[in-house]
Design a protein around this nucleic acid. Sequence first.
DNA 1: CTGAAAGCGCTTACAG
DNA 2: CTGAAAGCGCTTACAG
Lengths: 327, 327
Amino acid sequence: MARVTSLDVAREAGVSQTTVSFVLNGKNEFGISETTRRLVLETAQRLGYAPSAVARALRSGRSQVVVFLLTDAPVTEPFGRFKREVTAAVQAQGLTCVFLELSGLAGGVSAVCQHLDPAIVVSTTVLAEVDKQALVRSGVPVIDGVLGSEDASVAGLDQREIGRMQVRHLADRGHRVIGFAAVDAPQDQPFCLPRLEGAREQCLLLGLAEPVVARMDYSLDGAVGALVRWGGNGVSAVAAFNDVVAVAVLGACRMRGLDVPGDLAIIGVDNDSVGRLTVPTLTTIGIDLTVPAQSLARALVDVAEGNAARSSAVAAQALTVIHRASS
Amino acid sequence: MARVTSLDVAREAGVSQTTVSFVLNGKNEFGISETTRRLVLETAQRLGYAPSAVARALRSGRSQVVVFLLTDAPVTEPFGRFKREVTAAVQAQGLTCVFLELSGLAGGVSAVCQHLDPAIVVSTTVLAEVDKQALVRSGVPVIDGVLGSEDASVAGLDQREIGRMQVRHLADRGHRVIGFAAVDAPQDQPFCLPRLEGAREQCLLLGLAEPVVARMDYSLDGAVGALVRWGGNGVSAVAAFNDVVAVAVLGACRMRGLDVPGDLAIIGVDNDSVGRLTVPTLTTIGIDLTVPAQSLARALVDVAEGNAARSSAVAAQALTVIHRASS
DNA sequence: CTGAAAGCGCTTACAG
DNA sequence: CTGAAAGCGCTTACAG
């Protein structure tokens, strides 16, 4: 079963390959008659013609593929939605977005281009300078550190705003000494650091003491340790880096007989479904990355075309406090 | 900055394009002298030559890309690792695996081939027959229902075995009337149904009563409802579809003043990190999908080459009971 | 308004 | 042992 080519369609319709190409690519400015147009379309349909992406890419020198590199990317629900929304937004721009699990790949980034020839590469993490150079040298533009950069980043979401919102929420409810539950895991730092920084800024702005930072791994023991530290500093409310850490703090409170939110209020980040299932349920910051996904898609197209990325305003509307029982 | 082509390398090295191609593709059977070989390799390196995947694909008629379709795929940690392991295993077979978020895509599967020309398409969900036909018609082989099929599937992991293990664990600890916490969400059914079936089988085998099934959404209210139903049936232990549901049951127990595991034992599935953070910590089934990922990668290559997939033995070693405080 | 022809970069028979 | 040439399927100047 040989592949149906545009030449097959041309022959079958009794026109030239050129005409087929023009019709199928909507190059109407060449003034092809409506009759011919219909005939070509109908013939292509009938033969089940599907253009070869590979041939098109070779000819045009540009593939239509966006490779989105995932390196220990967050497994949270908002990020899962983000991937779907980026996919949709990129598609709306006429490209196709695929995700590549870089952490599973031997040989690293350079191996990416071996089989893929992407129009552009996007990465959640900041790429090593060598890798970046290698890509750029083979003509592939790169946008890295997406969502996690310390400045507002191409997606227009400032991670610091998350920390600020957490503190504002807790301060609104009368808390004056606030703890911050940070994590050690390296892959979380691009998110954890700016969130903490935002929390600091907001405390300063509100005339509160510096937040009392406790670092922990994802364990109950770690959370109990944090509790002790906070207890010694008069902390009455905790902003957790994310919902999972918040659950750990919740568990530690239970172990130590502390009432939540009576003895300690807790707010997480992510609105993970598990936060609706704990007792007490978890106050959290919901993240809607629809707008950031669209900003990113626009920036992608700009950069893929060799222009500078349009910068995006901070998408403050991406964030909402979801107030539940833990605060 | 024009692209470096194999012809550039040939000219620079003073040999023909053919020789360059042979050297770079390791076609040593043509007896190229060691000196020439070295020269070509060194020149390619020096010029920073990277072969065009697109040209190669056009010429050979086969791309080297595996497209892994994700449709509301589970966001659990084992599945995250699975993706990395599939990526590695596929790479070991000489192909590149990328993931495509089908749920974010308008136009569905047919749009996939527009820009990608994959060597093979894999899907977690069972594809609609039309979509499957469309792919096969354009010459793209398909493997669908990966990990979720009711039979042992290409990956060699039988979801039923998970339910069996849960029941065996609970029965070993003396429980005679077992509840099953099932979920409503359609995307979970390919996993939930076989796990429940396995639980049923195992109860029968051990001479226990049928498991008492409660369906719920991911909510505390749903879990409380389930608790009432189980209470009326003398259930002393619950096998939950996954860890998130298990957390909901845990929460419901807390609300109703039930002791875990005293009044009710609970076992989840997935070994999600949250299960180590609840109080009590959660007994669960750990899933190591390394072996299934490798089976899948082998099957992929078979099918991409037009052969039947090698069937795989059930990878029982993929599953382990992780015994914690909830049972 | 439509067609013949070139060329994207590669691999691989075929000829020396 | 090595080279000249064809051809994968497409798009697009160029010519009519």
